[in-house]
Design a protein around this nucleic acid. Structure first.
Lengths: 250, 250
DNA sequence: CGAGCAATTGACCGGCGTCAATGGGCGTGG
DNA sequence: CCACGCCCATTGACGCCGGTCAATTGCTCG
């Protein structure tokens, strides 16, 4: 089937919504999603998209690239809470939580699709079943943060990093971006440190250990998993919390 | 005004919903909330209410007592993600996230009000504005976890504990349960350790330090804050993430 | 009255932070 | 075209926060 660029560009978004929905979308629902007025914008790496304290009037979906949600302490220390992969809607929450309590930034170069809150509200009014899909999307986001918190609180650096890699490969795989368990890993080691709650020096040592254990390689900003069961075991990784369909967690 | 026990028992719930709502509830909405069929049950301390993997068909609100949400690693280490105070609805998420990814347990003795998902769905259909209030409630829950994650990842044990105490006193204060910045603190030190991501031994040392700094006292399961600005400063506490009304964060 | 757990404290240890130095890649300006 | 600056990656030396182990003292409850 031939796709207009217009349709093609929001492919990841549609795919993600269909994954989140517990039911099969009707043609009308799918059409309404495609008809959603969307402003596409290109962002450079390491740019803030929205900031803590903002009161956004629109949400955005990630069409390509990797982004992250982070918060900072008053002392200026950063903690990354989640990474976002294509198809995600990182600030769905701003629909009903008017003041943002988080920052969202690009990690690699990203294409973003902005949609006004008004349009989303109209969509939900016209297609009430989509309300629960969107709600569910925000609940899944929350589940990811909780799992990540379990890591930060209760696993050592080695397991934490293994877990992050397991999650990224699985999520990117679910949108077709991790063939053969190989994916982009655009973040620098200082950035990884902010996600893992450790220092960049220790990130480096931990990566070295994961490599020498034969679990992964990491070169030219690409991560390859060589021993998937081994990495899962090191991480204590169970993909259930991602709420993907079974076919997407292989 | 005289209140029937029926109405009185769900006071904390109504109060909480009104805090979460961005608008003033109509009489009809309030009446519908009061009419919601609710099964009240008494739970002992340290009992699981729902478990990871469950598929609940009802949600519950905490009418009295303190509860917590926790997860465990495969290695058996517990991490408490949030505490719940009266009025909260800890498992609202189960409405649309059919398989639970968390455990919820009592900390002190609790009175719980169970409401079937069906009844909640009916309520939202009849009063669409309540949908966004409930959605918003789940978003606020998520915001608490994110702030807690920032602590766990980026603050030392001393600041972490100070932050937990700030949050509890503020949230309990918002439902009238922390007069003079004094409140119940029913959790044991091993339990606090699971919330803070440290060991019980170190919890003990940290409490000792907070006491000797003159910030708090802790006796007979009661916490008293003596130096509120000092405790906030030690924690780097900013109550914005709680999404309370200004009058409730004093 | 003994079992079991919470609270407390001391001694010791290890994972991770801090500090510092080196080398490499890349952009910018002379 | 090269020099310089800047940041990332990497590694070693060393120190400290918080973990581990263990002992003591209550308290509660059967």
């Amino acid at each position: 089937m031939f796709e207009t660029p217009h349709q093609a560009s929001r492919q990841p978004f549609l795919r993600r919504i269909e994954t989140v929905a517990l039911f099969t979308l009707s043609d009308a629902e799918r059409a309404a999603l495609v008809a959603l007025p969307m402003q596409v914008a290109q962002f450079e790496p390491n740019q803030d998209i929205v900031r803590e304290g903002d009161r956004p009037t629109r949400s955005f979906t990630l069409l390509s690239g990797i982004a992250c949600t982070y918060k900072s302490t008053l002392a200026g220390k950063r903690q990354v809470m989640t990474y976002h992969v294509p198809g995600d809607v990182p600030d769905f929450q701003s629909l009903y939580l008017e003041v943002l309590d988080i920052n969202i930034a690009t990690v690699s170069a990203c294409r973003l699709g902005f949609v006004s809150h008004e349009a989303v509200r109209g969509l939900m009014r016209a297609h009430p079943r989509l309300t629960e899909v969107f709600w569910r999307a925000t609940l899944i986001d929350a589940a990811l943060v909780r799992e990540w918190m379990l890591n930060t609180g209760r696993r050592d650096a080695y397991a934490r990093m293994a877990h992050l890699f397991c999650e990224l490969v699985t999520r990117l795989g679910a949108v077709g971006l991790a063939p053969d368990r190989t994916c982009e890993l655009p973040m620098t080691q200082p950035e990884l440190a902010d996600a893992l709650g450790i220092t960049s020096v220790h990130v480096n040592r931990t990566i070295r250990d994961l490599k020498s254990a034969g679990l992964i390689t990491l070169r030219d900003r690409r991560l390859t998993v060589h021993d998937w069961p081994g990495l899962q075991a090191a991480a204590g990784f169970d993909p259930a919390y991602l709420h993907l369909r079974d076919a997407e967690t292989r």
